[in-house]
Design a protein around this nucleic acid. Structure first.
Lengths: 111, 111
DNA sequence: CTTATAGGCAACCAAAGGGTTGCATGTCAA
DNA sequence: TTGACATGCAACCCTTTGGTTGCCTATAAG
């Protein structure tokens, strides 16, 4: 499906940045953190972190709820699971055959 | 390890582009294709495809060998496997708990 | 009520990304 | 050897991205 592909694309793009993966790691370590908490120790402005979180939210990797004046962020592991199921596992199936092709090609190169 | 993290970063970045994932798919369908073959049907110049392949090669997702005047490209599924093993599976472990947190947070939001 | 705290919004900027075109090189085939 | 084919290299261009700063709004606390 087309929308599904776009979703996959969004997830891959979101995961392409080290800082964003670090943010996911932080939420993985402790879920439900506020924006201020998520800013701690990262060498960048609050607005930069906000932008990253927006991208993560658009990719559905993070959901947020407001509690009073603060915003709590929750990890959503579902898209990561999807990527593993629908994308990575595909390459897993023929993994050894591909490695065999590769090895053979590199050997012939040495002739 | 630091170099390992950089490798992971390179793989994620390489996978972030739809065209590059499509190239991997094409090699998945038939391994060992030439540059010209890999250009077919993609709506872009040969040089554009070359650039994408360079990125994939730098990320170790593709290896190439020269045969005469042509260059054969082989899929290397190892980095994809690594991502699955070392990164995705981590989030897999606490997946249901995270989803539970998420659900609870969203419920409280409706109060 | 006043002030400090948590966060939102918009403008701006430099660098990276994805693409193009033009030309050069190396190899196969006639 | 000459021409066609497969690829390499470099300059250039526009858009996206990741970051900044400044200011505005809303809630909590004194």
């Amino acid at each position: 499906m087309d929308t599904e592909d776009e979703a996959v694309d969004g997830v891959f793009r979101a995961l392409a940045d080290t800082n964003r993966r670090a943010l996911l790691d932080t939420l993985f370590a402790r879920n439900g953190q506020t924006l201020s908490e998520l800013c701690e120790g990262r060498g960048m402005s609050r607005q930069a972190v906000t932008k990253h979180l927006v991208i993560l939210e658009n990719a559905n990797l993070v959901a947020s709820v407001k509690r009073g004046r603060e915003k709590l962020h929750y990890l959503n592991p579902a898209p990561i699971h999807e990527i593993g199921e629908r994308w990575i596992s595909k390459y897993e199936r023929t993994r050894l055959e591909a490695l065999f092709d590769l090895k053979k090609a590199l050997e012939n190169d040495n002739e």
